[in-house]
Amino acid sequence: MRVAVLDVGSNSAHLQVVDDSFDPVFRLKEPTLLAESVTPDGALSPDAVERLVAAVARTVAASREQAVADLIPLATATIRDATNNAEIRRRVRDATGVELRSLSGEDEARVTFLAVRRYLGPAAGHLLLLDIGGMSMEVAAGAGERPDVAVSLPIGAGRLTRQLLPHHPASRDAVAEVRRRVRHALRDLPKVSSPDLVVGTSKTFKQLARVAGDGRRLTRRKLRAWVPRLAGMTPRERAKLPGVAASRARQLLAGAVIAEAAMDALGVEALKVCPWALREGLLLRRLTELAQA
């Protein structure tokens, strides 16, 4: 039996299909480019809604061609928090027959933590997870498959780019304001025990590890050195860096500042980048449920 997750996020609608042994079968990404298309009242613009519906329609059609028996259609924070989310869900349902679902930010943190734990195994010990998305950053920590701490904060790379970084190259004051916003958001984070391993997951961390690390590990020292370099670039120049997609180049600076400021606030000198995240966590959880049914 084939199971799939359709993750509709700020940059793409991403379909990931596996069989019941969790072996990969098929992937498809269709661009949505929603992060820069939020109106002042918090709605997605009409053009963005059109792109989203078309992207979901193409991925849903592909899931049917792949004979997917169980599809998990997830709308992440960009859609979940949009003031016109009811209209968006209706448009998607009318066009595809699929009802987009959402998790709370805290549940996203828990599911992502499950994926990281399964990938690294119990020998990794007590984990601290950082996950930077388009609209939010999730933080989770614990020693088992269920984290003791699971928090979602409104400091995603797309959100802070739109709110605080309107111009690129960016000024030193604008970068400092992003850093202040991140430190303020982390101020009330529940106390986290000293972890055995700190893990970063999400496309943002993967790109930063390619730019400022070795692709698998990222240090705060190197990341801090890269922040002013990224601030001095245009999005087109950032898109020429290794591993940086043109669709994400504009928000890469905010992602770097969020990552560096969070690592600084939490006393993290280095982290390991994990390739598994929310999609893998949803698939693993669903396959476990089916096996127990």
Rank of each mutant, 00 (worst) to 15 (best):
V8C: 05
N11Q: 05
L15D: 02
D19P: 12
D20R: 12
F22L: 13
L28E: 03
K29V: 04
T32E: 02
L34Y: 02
D47R: 11
D47N: 08
E50M: 02
V56S: 02
V56M: 03
V56Q: 00
R58A: 12
S63T: 05
R64V: 13
P73A: 09
N85I: 05
E87M: 12
R93E: 08
L103I: 06
G105E: 01
T112Y: 04
R118D: 15
Y119H: 15
G121W: 15
P122M: 06
A123Y: 03
D131L: 06
E138L: 06
V139P: 02
A141N: 06
V151H: 02
V151M: 11
I155Y: 04
L164T: 03
L164C: 10
P169A: 05
R172F: 11
V178P: 03
R180Q: 14
L189P: 05
D196K: 10
T201N: 05
S202W: 01
K203R: 12
T204E: 03
R216T: 15
L218Q: 01
R220H: 08
R221F: 09
L223I: 05
R229A: 02
R236K: 13
K240L: 09
P242M: 03
A245Q: 10
R248M: 09
A249G: 08
A249C: 08
A261S: 15
A262L: 02
L266D: 04
E269A: 12
E269D: 14
A270K: 15
K272F: 14
V273N: 04
E280D: 15
R285M: 15
R286E: 15
E289H: 12
A291R: 14
Q292K: 08
A293K: 11
A293D: 13
